[in-house]
Measured scan of single mutants.
Amino acid sequence: MTGIVKWFNADKGFGFITPDDGSKDVFVHFSAIQNDGYKSLDEGQKVSFTIESGAKGPAAGNVTSL
């Protein structure tokens, strides 16, 4: 699925993605970002991701920028 990064705190390594389908915002951890180098996201960035079952509920996985 796709969405827009609502916010991401690079110091803490997590944030939230707002899915394009209008569903509830999804937690994203830096370890789910699939790019080389520094793993961070920018507010407003368009991303593709999967929904994984995290310890505290749904979380984004396999996050790639579009």
Rank of each mutant, 00 (worst) to 15 (best):
G57N: 07
F14R: 02
A60H: 02
G61D: 07
D42A: 14
K12D: 04
I17M: 02
S65Q: 12
N62L: 10
G15E: 00
G57K: 07
E43Q: 15
A10K: 15
K6L: 06
F30T: 06
V5G: 01
S40K: 14
A59S: 13
I4R: 13
H29R: 04
D36E: 14
S40Q: 10
I17H: 00
W7S: 04
Q45C: 06
G44D: 04
Y38T: 11
I51L: 12
V26N: 01
A32Q: 10
F27Y: 10
W7P: 00
E43M: 15
V47Y: 02
V26I: 13
F8I: 03
G61L: 13
P58K: 11
S48H: 12
A32K: 09
G3V: 01
V26R: 02
A55I: 12
G22A: 06
S23D: 07
Y38I: 12
D21G: 08
D36L: 12
F27D: 00
A32Y: 04
G37L: 10
D42G: 13
D36Y: 12
G22K: 07
T50C: 09
P19L: 06
D25T: 06
Q34R: 11
A32D: 06
H29A: 04
G3H: 01
H29K: 03
V26D: 00
N62Q: 11
Y38M: 11
S53N: 14
K6E: 02
H29V: 04
D42H: 15
S31D: 04
G61H: 14
I4V: 14
G13R: 05
N62H: 10
D11C: 15
D21I: 07
I17Q: 00
K39A: 08
G15N: 00
K6A: 07
A60N: 01
P19Y: 06
F49C: 01
Q45P: 01
F14P: 00
G61W: 12
G37V: 09
H29P: 03
F14E: 03
A10G: 10
Q34D: 09
K24G: 11
K6W: 04
P58F: 13
H29I: 04
G44N: 06
L66N: 08
G44S: 04
I51G: 03
I51E: 03
A32P: 02
N9A: 09
N9W: 11
T2L: 10
A10Y: 12
K24V: 12
K24H: 11
F14N: 02
P58M: 11
G44W: 05
N9C: 12
K56S: 11
F16M: 07
D20E: 08
D21Y: 07
D21M: 06
V28K: 00
K46W: 12
L41N: 01
E43R: 15
I33D: 02
G57D: 04
F16Y: 08
F27M: 03
F16D: 00
F14H: 05
